[in-house]
């Protein structure tokens, strides 16, 4: 890992310093309620969401303006995703999935501002999201379908001898879901941010600084893409898991 900070000549690497959690006020210990930079950036994320979806649509215009169009496009995209993947009975959970999507999207996007902090780069945050979704859909499936939900693991169209083996594999893959779901998001965001910081460290050396700065720009562009794609992927996988819970027959 590039985690160790070392100083050799002009090279200063602290690629992980940006993920440090610090109290907003003073330098005291961090309790569960202490307002930290996590709080600040989560709060900004909430503010942006409110600005876009509440203030942006306050005109309720039949012919939308720019901001209302953006809110409507996000609404339409997630709504269609839920309806197409999870079916019509999945639409009930649309606000929940929309919450996940806008939260991850804006946390990622705000994290791309220089000097910012990215909550979604922390495994604690993404694990809460991933396991939250996992526990939710599992309970939903069990409550809705009872033991029939376990049919998800029993491939009735496979040869009889293979069914127990497939069932074991299916169970394992089912329980790996929340882990991959959360690590995928945190890993992607963290790796990109750390990479930008490494390039920034190289930018201090005159000889390679043009290359390093070009690298920063390129990785930044990639990160904008990743910020959106990871939010999209997280949401679409949530829809797929929700579909499994609502229609475990296949």
């Amino acid at each position: 890992m590039a985690g160790e900070a070392h100083e050799e000549g002009g090279l200063v690497f602290h690629p992980l310093d940006q993920f440090q959690i610090k109290p907003l006020f003073g330098d005291g210990p961090i309790h569960w309620y202490t307002p930290t930079n996590v709080t600040l950036w989560l709060g900004l994320c909430v503010l942006v969401v409110v600005a876009l979806f509440v203030f942006g649509t306050r005109g309720r215009a039949v012919i939308p303006g720019r901001i209302q169009s953006m809110a409507e496009m996000a609404y339409g995209m997630v709504y269609k995703m839920v309806e197409e993947i999870a079916g019509h009975d999945g639409v009930k959970y649309f606000p929940m999935i929309m919450t996940l999507f806008v939260f991850i999207l804006f946390a990622n996007m705000l994290g791309l501002l220089p000097m910012s902090f990215t909550p979604t780069s922390h495994i604690a945050v993404t694990a809460v999201l991933g396991f939250g979704v996992f526990i939710f859909v599992t309970l939903l499936g069990l409550i809705k379908h009872g033991t029939h939900f376990l049919g998800l693991f029993w491939m009735s169209d496979a040869p009889l001898i293979l069914r127990p083996i497939i069932a074991v594999i299916e169970v394992i893959s089912y329980f790996v879901r929340p882990v991959s779901h959360s690590i995928r998001l945190a890993g992607n965001i963290m790796a990109g941010h750390a990479m930008i910081k490494v390039f920034a460290g190289f930018a201090a050396v005159t000889l390679i600084s043009p290359l390093a700065i070009f690298g920063i720009a390129a990785v930044y562009g990639l990160e904008v893409l990743v910020a959106f794609i990871q939010a999209y992927v997280f949401t679409i996988l949530t829809c797929v898991y929700l579909k499994d819970a609502l229609h475990p027959g296949h």
Binding site: I21, I30, V38, T39, L42, F53, V125, V128
Partner: peptide
């Protein structure tokens, strides 16, 4: 700390949305 503030943020976003 992170989980607490995350839940607060998620609840606020969920309620607003």
């Amino acid at each position: 700390n992170q989980i607490f503030w995350l839940l607060v943020a998620l609840v606020v976003i969920y309620v607003v949305l």
